[in-house]
Design a protein around this nucleic acid. Sequence first.
RNA 1: GGCGGCGUAGCCAAGUGGCUAAGGCGGAGGUCUGCAAAACCUCUACUCAGCGGUUCGAAUCCGCUCGCCGCCUCCA
Length: 463
Amino acid sequence: MIRISNTMTRTKEEFVPLTSGEVRMYVCGVTVYDYSHIGHARSAIVFDVIRRYLAFKGYRVTFVKNYTDVDDRIIRRANEAGVSPREFAERYVAAEREDMAALGVLAPDVDPKATEHVSEMLELIERLVASGHAYPVDGDVYFEISRFPPYGRLSGKNLDELLAGARVEVDERKRDPRDFALWKSSKPGEPTWESPWGPGRPGWHIECSAMAMRYLGESFDLHGGGEDLIFPHHECEIAQSEACTGKPLARYWVHNGMVNMGKEKMSKSLGNTLNIREIVKRHDPDALRLWMLGTHYRNMIEWSEERVEESARALDRLARLLHDAVTVRDAGGAASLPPALAEFRPRFEKAMDDDFNTPQALGVLFDFGRALAEARDRQAGAPGAFVAGVAELAQLARVLGLFGRGAPVDGPGAAVERLVTARGEARARRDFKRADELRDEIARLGWLVEDTPAGSRLTPKGR
RNA sequence: GGCGGCGUAGCCAAGUGGCUAAGGCGGAGGUCUGCAAAACCUCUACUCAGCGGUUCGAAUCCGCUCGCCGCCUCCA
């Protein structure tokens, strides 16, 4: 049984999908006006892991993540760059896909763009106007908060306080300062769609309602995003959607914690972001992932190069096991998992079942790794047992998205093998100077030679 | 001001009523080794921000104090 922290109820609840054996999930994606940063990476990795785990547990998962490709900042930056907003947004959609792939994040089943779903949005807005939940003013359309009493439930805000807090740009045309835009009349030079209220473009919140319902239905299982989206974005999404359908939009609202730079939240508006493409130049994406999954997804995490480097060292221990297994397997060993190594999978699942507790799950993986290394070094039992154990470990690690690109399996090649043999001969005649030279040469070819009681071992360097 | 979260070893981080307080990094010692590297073994929090309280029993529940962060405005 999987338990999930639900922002809506502020409790950990048993996960029961609407349709048995099937999970439909929607995650808010990025606004494409710049490169994605580490904060986006965290959200992507968190929901990637949730998705993988649900699939691992046997659910048929449909995963939808949108692109917001129409927005004030896109328009402004596109104008500055002298390209059309459409072309500008397209550029960053492509960049985002590259970044996600580099991080080992699985592509969504559907990744809809707002601009391609304007007709669905207009349909929703028309229904809301017809039902009296929204009202047009001078080509704009606003959602009337007071017509939807549950407004504020997700974020735990009460409406009076929101009123007191509505301090910026009180628009006199709105019936209530808390009302939010569903449709905005467009200014000259902006992307425009025809609507019953004149030419305009959609407000931010409506796109998610439209796309989520289009691909997942009026009610689905899990809605995710960064915790900074709880208010107002998800609150507004709920209001629009549920005012329309009378049904709960999502059963479980899941939010990931922020990535901080120092003590401050990383955010585009604060200008303290670190782009994914810069980071993957310096760090193994798996090390980055391991670092992130070392903190529970709901907690804040503070960016640190040092922590990621530490994670890379930890990752190395596991990676080495995988590599050794390839060597042993090639030496002819394969067997079923010995009972002594069967305890780890249930422990892993127990951790993950409890609100996707990846730090605890990783602890299990490292325990598993230690048990395997011990088995390898003792050379106890059939080598096949070690190989089977590593295969099991790798399978569990892959649920977290680790080692997705596979362990380094390319062989060292004949040239390197010859050097290793030569070095062995040099060592045998105690010509250590020559042996060390050969080791350096092998290192230049990308391989690390290590001498063990069982002979010299090769490991690819700098994975 | 309102709402929410956090404070656990040198650092990172699980654990949220009762076995020895996970795991990672770092550090110390050991085994192995021509050296090195890796690996493995052992050790590294008598204690969970502080103070009270509830309880047979609390890091875990309650209250207060201190410190930090997020949301309330575009934001993953």
